[in-house]
Design a protein around this nucleic acid. Structure first.
Length: 843
RNA sequence: GCCGGCGUGGCGAAACUGGCAGACGCAAGGGACUUAAAAUCCCUCGGCCUUUGGCCAUACGGGUUCGAGCCCCGUCGCCGGUACCA
């Protein structure tokens, strides 16, 4: 009988579905395990071959845990990615809901086809009012606790989505989603005070098991730095406050710089001799997009505020004040003291504007360049700091500032508050109304959910107003507080809102009276293992940690952190069809002939296809035609092969290229298993010839799954199968193999399990145990080195002592020859591994 | 620039805490079976040489060590994150 993967896979998927094999049970007495993956955005293109990588990985973990006796929660849902869905809907004249529903149906079909052990009954839909009722509820709690506020400020404006973006959504001055340029606009926005949680978001990383690169990226993004705030007196009497991490260099501060948006400028407007020039600069800075600001970063610009000067508190010198867009309004105090001798940016600016540069730390040549890495230098030209080390000077200066009430220690964070409103239709309405008398008033909780109204036209508008703003019937309402006329907030929430707490809803998806029931949250507690993409490290992951901490503070959840463990997968890349190495041999030959040499051929390819052609491995893209569709792979090879290959192709954490012809190897592996087990075997004990290999494989596969070394786990299973071809397996041997294979290739495992007549289902069998003693041999082949060089190998009894090992090694014919005329100076024995004989010629 | 990570055969990759480099798979070559092909099974497979053996090989140059892919110093290259954050 042939391995008919298509019908086998269908058969078992249907059975799992009907019997609800993977349903998690709330309150069950078994130990619980909660595995979580990031849902796919249900885009119109369907599943990408990259999706199954993290899903298969955690499916393997979830399946193993069930076999180990855990009550496993492994849920899935679809969270709408608002702007793309809406854009697609606009383009195709459809309602966003229809688009989302179609996409979800397609994704569900595709995911089911891959045999993931999701509990499909816990699907949640963040766009369902029953769900977003609770998203709105959480927002209201934040509002009531002062964590949501409306503020007018320059925001990132995507010129294509016609919508405000959070800082985290802007990549190099372009929109993270659509790639259009982002400009700055002054707008009144709802903000969430994530900055209030900055320190806790850093500190609590110590208590969770996240892979290191996730922790570092989060810490870098939050960007804590310790320094001092220093107050400079000005000739106008107003105090100009700055932040500096280098208080020690205060004697070298020769001028000040304020951000063009700094509030004091308005206050000083009357006094400024060059007000027109200042105004012009301010306007130009406001017009620049983020991209332009960074592009032009080498060329410093600025305008002096003529008529106002600051006084250096330690030297008493009057120094000029400039405005320049190299100082950011949103960080620190929006103003700096410039120390050109020891800061590259200040140095450039000082050179351009001919400002004095005073060296205060000895060691560099401050006429040539700023001396920045000067931690080990000694203070000079610095009055009472002279002769001190930098470290000492910082401390001394901080004390001096405090004593004179001119400054204090201060911690700053790069993290900004989260811009939370979007001028889009397709999002959760913000449940607040504005009343002339009472201000912003929350809706009573009994009125939640505030439904998104049906609307004919949901295109974004150019004036930056949400499409909801035109719906007078909806907008005009009464104030819940005073009963007077009021208007609803017309901006909606960003797509990150619903996804900031969705993992809680899985615990209790149908609860109408709470976002998650008390019993449910106490039972499931927190996510045990969450795997997701690195691209969400500074977005979703940070946002959801923030929301969770807030929910912890108001007593809704019992843990400070939502996820006990976080891992991340590498991307699936494709081969570049334009790269020389990936061309068919005949084509390579032809090009080499035509262009004289391989180098010539490569040069030609780069000329023809651009720089890109020099990279053999690239992201999959439609234009290169190297996109792999999982449907096709499943059709040709089956889901089990796809799952096995995607786990086998390389280190899970690293990017790896998809190679079509390598998939065959995994199909062959499954074929070979099929051939071994399609006929009923005899003997329920492990066969003597295979026993040791089986114990070793159980150990290795188990450990590898825990460490996400799926590729070597499969390699080890392949070796076991090869072993079974040498030594015919018993029915017991096959049973062990099938249980180990079952998390990776669950369908074929079930089918063969049934054919062998084992009880129940393979996915419900107990995970096999190994006996450490049985994983080892009685003998061991070890390396024999002479003077550190490998000469031969010998077989020793396992765990033999040093003397025995040296005896066996020196008795070897070849070693004997090498020892001729030499004497043994030293021996090094590494137990069960190697012996190294140090020989010297006899005199 | 700064912060992470990486660099190993024709290819994807293994290699624990410093201990036989290249497990496992792809491609390639040879053989068996077959009228033939596919499939399957078996063998070979880093390079070089004077081939019962020897030498060289883990981006490059040094170092530590009995012993280095792994540790240290320096250089080059690639990937990811971040960027006028004072």
């Amino acid at each position: 009988m042939k391995y008919d993967f298509a019908s086998i896979e269908q058969k078992w998927q249907k059975r799992w579905d009907e019997e609800k094999t993977f349903a998690a049970k709330n309150g069950d007495s078994r130990k619980k395990f909660y595995a979580l993956i990031e849902f796919p955005y249900p885009s119109g293109q369907g599943l990408h071959v990259g999706h199954p990588r993290p899903y298969t990985a955690l499916d393997i973990v979830a399946r193993k845990r069930r076999m180990e006796g855990y009550n496993v929660l492994f849920p899935i849902c679809f969270v709408d990615d608002a702007p793309p869905t809406e854009n697609y809907a606009i383009k195709n004249h459809m309602h966003p809901r229809t688009v989302t529903e179609n996409n979800i149906a397609n994704f569900t079909k595709q995911l089911k086809m891959l045999g993931f052990s999701f509990d499909w009954d816990r699907c949640v839909d963040t766009t369902d009012p029953k769900y977003y009722k609770w998203t709105q509820w959480i927002f209201l709690q934040m509002f009531k606790h002062g964590l949501a506020y409306k503020s007018s400020m320059p925001v990132n404006w995507c010129t294509s989505c016609k919508c405000v973006l959070a800082n985290e959504e802007v990549v190099n001055g372009f929109c993270e989603r659509c790639g259009a340029p982002v400009v700055r606009r002054e707008k009144s926005q709802w903000m969430l005070k994530i900055t209030e949680y900055a320190q806790r978001l850093i500190d609590d990383l110590d208590d969770v098991d996240y892979i290191e690169r996730v922790k570092t990226q989060q810490k870098n993004w939050i960007g804590r730095s310790t320094g001092a705030e220093i107050d400079f007196a000005t000739t106008e009497g107003d105090m100009l406050r700055v932040f500096s991490t280098r208080a020690d260099t205060l004697f070298g501060a020769t001028y000040m710089v304020m951000a063009p948006e700094h509030a004091l400028i308005e206050k000083w407007a009357d006094k400024l001799e060059n007000l027109d020039e200042v105004r012009e600069y301010q306007a130009a800075a406001a017009r620049k997009s983020d991209f332009e600001r960074t592009e032009l970063q080498k060329d410093k610009t600025g305008v002096e505020l003529k008529g106002v000067r600051a006084i250096n508190p330690v030297t008493g010198t009057e120094i000029p004040i400039f405005i320049s867009d190299y100082v950011l309004a949103s960080y620190g105090t929006g103003a700096i003291m410039a120390v050109p001798a020891h800061d590259e940016r200040d140095w450039e600016f000082a050179k351009k504007f001919g400002l004095p540069i005073i060296e205060v730390v000895k060691g560099g040549d401050v006429e040539k360049e700023a001396y920045v890495d000067c931690d080990k230098g000694v203070m000079v030209n610095s009055g009472f700091l002279d002769g001190m080390s930098v470290e000492e000077a910082i401390e001394t200066m901080k004390r001096w500032l405090e004593e004179h009430h001119l400054g204090r220690e201060k911690v700053n964070y790069k993290l900004r508050d989260w811009v939370f409103s979007r001028q889009r239709y397709w999002g959760e309405p913000i449940p607040l109304v504005y009343c002339e008398k009472c201000g912003w008033v929350p809706l009573p909780e009994s009125e939640l959910p505030l439904m998104l109204p049906d609307v004919k036209s949901y295109e974004p508008t150019d004036n930056g107003e949400s499409p909801l703003a035109h719906m007078d019937d909806w907008v005009n309402t009464t104030c819940p507080h005073c009963g007077g006329p009021a208007r609803r907030e017309t901006d909606t929430m960003p797509q990150w809102a619903g996804s900031s707490w969705y993992f809680l809803r899985y615990m209790d998806p149908h609860n109408d009276s709470a976002l998650v029931g008390k019993d449910a949250i106490e039972y499931w507690n927190q996510v045990d293992w969450y795997n997701g993409g690195m691209e969400h490290t500074t977005l979703h992951l940070l946002y959801s940690r923030f929301w969770h901490k807030f929910l912890y503070d108001i007593g809704v959840v019992p843990t400070k952190e939502p996820y006990a463990k976080r891992t991340s997968h590498g991307m699936i890349l494709g081969l570049n069809p334009h790269n020389f190495a990936n061309l068919p041999a005949e084509e390579q030959e032809r090009l080499v002939k035509e262009y004289g040499s391989e180098a010539g051929a490569k040069k030609y390819l780069v000329e023809k296809f651009g720089e890109m052609a020099s990279h053999p491995i690239v992201k999959m893209s439609k234009s290169l035609g190297n996109v792999v569709n999982p449907d096709d792979v499943v059709k040709t090879y089956g889901a089990d092969t796809l799952r096995t290959y995607i786990m086998f192709l390389g280190d899970f954490e690293k990017a790896a290229p998809w190679q079509d012809n390598a998939v065959k190897g995994c199909k062959r592996f499954l074929d070979r298993i099929w051939n071994l087990a399609e006929n009923r075997l005899e003997g329920d004990e492990y066969s003597a010839a295979n026993e040791r290999e089986i114990h070793r494989t159980i150990k290795k596969v188990g450990e590898d799954i825990e460490n996400m070394k799926f590729n070597t786990a499969i390699a080890c299973l392949m070796s076991l199968v090869n072993q079974f071809y040498e030594h015919k397996p018993s029915r017991g041997d096959i049973r062990a193999l099938l249980t180990l294979v079952s998390p990776f290739a669950p369908h074929i495992a079930e089918e063969l399990w049934e054919l062998q007549g084992f009880e129940g289902m393979a996915c419900q069998a107990a995970w096999p145990q190994y006996d450490e003693a049985k994983t080892v041999d009685s003998e061991k082949e070890i390396a024999v080195q002479v003077n550190g060089k490998l000469k031969t190998t010998v077989v020793i009894p396992m765990d033999a002592d040093d003397e025995t090992v040296i005896g066996i090694a020196t008795a070897d014919e070849k070693i004997k020859r090498l020892m001729d005329g030499m004497h043994l100076v030293k021996t090094i024995v590494v137990k069960n591994k190697l012996v190294n004989l140090i020989l010297k010629p006899c005199k």
